[in-house]
Design a binder for these strands. Sequence first.
DNA 1: ATAATAATTCAATAAGTATTGAAATATGAA
DNA 2: TTCATATTTCAATACTTATTGAATTATTAT
Lengths: 108, 108
Amino acid sequence: MKYEKKIAIDALGSLAHEVRLDIFRLLVRAGPDGMAAGDIAGALKIAGPNLTFHLSHMRQAGLVSSRRAGRNVIYAADFSRMTALIGYLQENCCEGITPAAAKQKESA
Amino acid sequence: MKYEKKIAIDALGSLAHEVRLDIFRLLVRAGPDGMAAGDIAGALKIAGPNLTFHLSHMRQAGLVSSRRAGRNVIYAADFSRMTALIGYLQENCCEGITPAAAKQKESA
DNA sequence: ATAATAATTCAATAAGTATTGAAATATGAA
DNA sequence: TTCATATTTCAATACTTATTGAATTATTAT
């Protein structure tokens, strides 16, 4: 499979679950500083092991990064993967429908 | 769950599979006229029942529409769901990173 | 060193998704 | 009507993903 497509599918699959979408939105709102795993668990009421499972999934998909800070592990949204995904969808799945593509079409 | 979020998750899940992403991209390229199920199966080398399974999935998610034409059933991409998905992701998962949002931020 | 807190790993189970081949339905042609 | 083509339904199986509770590892504080 083409590399770019695999990246896109991994990101799509990672976001296609309520818990993970909630996590990602929370981390987007938290910004670059991110949030401790425990705080995410508290905010979304998810059990520890389940949270780890979903965060690992998202990290594998490149949607979040993590770093340790004392006994906490801080997770942060990785925006570049998100914008790459949107770019992929616009280029491959829209064909002149989105504003950006429509603009291109206009000037062609 | 919020309605808009459910719609987004369904669309994400529907696109998060190689076969379905391939189908969708094929239908996007085919345009509004769409393609007969058999032609999709031929182009992507998918067995009939499996194709039906994936197309049903996508129709349920609102990504494709279908109509019968003689003995063929024609499937077409539904662009509005796709653009709605991109809009959702930009609004909820990007926070001022995409060009559009950056523009808004600029003028704010 | 001991205890307390934070997070992860592990193993078991439950739940959901994908694929296949055979059978059924729908339409059009001879 | 009978036959051929197109698609779907069905049932079985295989595969993947999600959830839970118990045990483990990592870090800090006493």
